[in-house]
């Protein structure tokens, strides 16, 4: 894991940008995760101080939302939808297949650090179930074959 001291200036800058905004905790957490890929636990001290909150309060919010993570993600994050529509369209098969192919469970990162796997509950893309996202891109009608092709593409891109 990276030394927090090298990340601290980024965190402070994000805090600074949002300082005057009411209800700024969530935008700040998103800002940090968007930039660093995760929220380093050490950043919580700075966030709490800047917002006049306790560390416990900030931690409570981070841990409440599964989207926020406190460890660095892989290069690409794959999110598989587990909501009703996707499950009805073979989502479970896709889920098992993905875990097998990647050799990891949900909330884990492959040993080569390329992929992290996360569950998600509805991407609003139900008409094209089952859906996944890779990083910010939404993909529909993901069969196991299509999943393998996508993996190869993203791996190849590296």
């Amino acid at each position: 894991m990276q030394d927090y001291q090298t990340q601290k200036p980024t965190v402070l800058e994000i805090l600074n940008t949002h300082q005057a905004m009411p209800g700024n905790l969530l935008p700040i957490l998103h800002g940090i995760q968007d930039t660093l890929g995760y929220i380093p636990p050490a950043a919580v001290v700075d966030i709490a101080k800047a917002l006049n909150l306790s560390q416990a309060e900030v931690h409570g919010v981070i841990s409440f939302y599964h989207y926020f993570r406190e460890t660095p993600p892989g290069e690409h994050t794959i999110r598989i939808c587990r909501a009703e529509s996707c499950q009805a369209m073979n989502g479970k098969v896709l889920e098992t297949h993905a875990k097998q192919q990647l050799g990891i469970d949900f909330h884990e990162t492959t040993a080569d650090g390329i992929f992290s796997l996360e569950p998600v509950y509805c991407l609003g893309n139900c008409a094209c179930s089952p859906s996944i996202t890779i990083d910010d891109e939404v993909m529909g009608r993901v069969t196991t074959e299509k999943f393998d092709r996508l993996l190869a593409t993203y791996k190849g891109a590296k």
């Binding site: 306790s54 416990a56 931690h59 409570g60 841990s63 409440f64």
Partner: peptide, 9 residues
């Protein structure tokens, strides 16, 4: 002091 929170959900 706000030292406690609920972790997770």
């Amino acid at each position: 002091t706000f030292a406690l929170t609920i972790d997770g959900r």
